[in-house]
Design a protein around this nucleic acid. Sequence first.
DNA 1: GTCTATATCGAGATAGAC
DNA 2: GTCTATCTCGATATAGAC
Lengths: 189, 189
Amino acid sequence: MINPTRKEEIIKIAGKLFKQKGYSAVTMRDLAQEMGIKAASLYNHINSKQEILELILIQIAQEFTSGMQNILISDNTNVEKLKSVVLLHVKLASENPDGMAVLNNDWMHLENKRGYYLQLRKQYEDNLKTIITKGIEHNEIKNMNPDVVMFSLLSTLRYLYVWIPKKEDIDINNLTSQLVEVLIGGINK
Amino acid sequence: MINPTRKEEIIKIAGKLFKQKGYSAVTMRDLAQEMGIKAASLYNHINSKQEILELILIQIAQEFTSGMQNILISDNTNVEKLKSVVLLHVKLASENPDGMAVLNNDWMHLENKRGYYLQLRKQYEDNLKTIITKGIEHNEIKNMNPDVVMFSLLSTLRYLYVWIPKKEDIDINNLTSQLVEVLIGGINK
DNA sequence: GTCTATATCGAGATAGAC
DNA sequence: GTCTATCTCGATATAGAC
C-alpha cells in the first residue's frame, strides 16, 4: 500500500491489535488511540467493529481459496502440490502475519459471514485431504493415516504467523524449502 | 472428579466456554447460565473471572513443567525423549482439551500471573530445544535447522486440543505412535 | 475528517435477604 | 449456596458542530 487510505490504515492497525489481544478484548478506543484519533472518528471510515473483522478475514480466506484452485488445476504430482500448499501458506503468512493470527483465533466472532467463512475453510480442507489421499494411492506418500498427516501439516502451517516476524526479514523460498524438508521429507517415500 | 465441588464445576464449565469464544467474550452471566444459577452466585465460590483463568492455566503450565522434568532426568536417548514429549502433550491434551485451548489462546489475558506463565513456557521451550540440539549433535537426528524442527513439532502438539475430541474416544498410545511416526519418523536418521 | 457530547447497553462485582 | 437489587464502569455507536 503506497498511499493507504484511512480505511486501509484502520484495517492494518486493527489486525495488529486483534493479534495481540484478540478481537473481543480490543476496544474501538484502543484502536482509535493507536490511530491518533478519537473513537467516534473511526465511524467515518467503517460501519462497525464487526465490519473490520470481516474485511480482515474474508480477504485472506478468499486468497487461500484462490491459491488452492491454482494448485489443483496444475498437473503436478501430489507431492509437488503439497509443496505448493506449503509455499502458499508461507507466502500469505509472510504478507500478512497479523491477519493470519486473526484468521486462526477470531473467526468464531464473525457474525453474518461466519457461515461463509466456514464453507470456504471446509472446501480448502477437503481439497487438501484429497491431495494427500491421492498421494498415498499413487504411491508418492507413505501409507500413513491421512488425517494424521493432514493434521500435522495444517497445524504447522497455521502457526506460521507466530514464527514469521516481518516479510522483509525472511527468505520465503528458503523457509519454504526447510519446512518442506521437515514436513514432506518425513512423508515422501 | 468423582464428587466435584461447585468450584471445580465452575472451572470446568468456564474452560468449555473459554474454548468456544475466548476468555474476553465469555461473560460471568454466560457462565452462570450454563451452571444454572445467577451470576452473583458465582462469587460465593470464586473471587473473580481472572481467578478462574489463573486456576485453569497455571495448573496445566505446571503439569507441563513437571512432565518435562521427568523426561529430562531419564537416561533415554534424545529421540526417545522427544517421543516422551509427544506422549506428554497427547496425555495432557486428552485429559483436558478445553484447558489446552485456553492455554494456547488466552494466556495473554492473565494479569498478575502472566509473567510467571511466560517464565514456565520459556523454560519448557528451552528444554525442548536442548533435546533437539543434543539429538543433532549425537547424530540421532538429521542435521536440520533445530528451530524449524522445534517449530513444526510444537505447532502440531499445541493444536492437539482441536483434534482430540474426548478422552474416552481415543487410544492415547495409538495416537502417540502415529504422531511419532509422522513427526519423528521424518527427523530420525 | 475529526471533534465533543451523549445514548444505550451490558460488563464485573458487591450487599444483604433468605 | 443462591437470590434480587444495585453500583460503577466502559463498551459500541450516533448526532451534529467545526
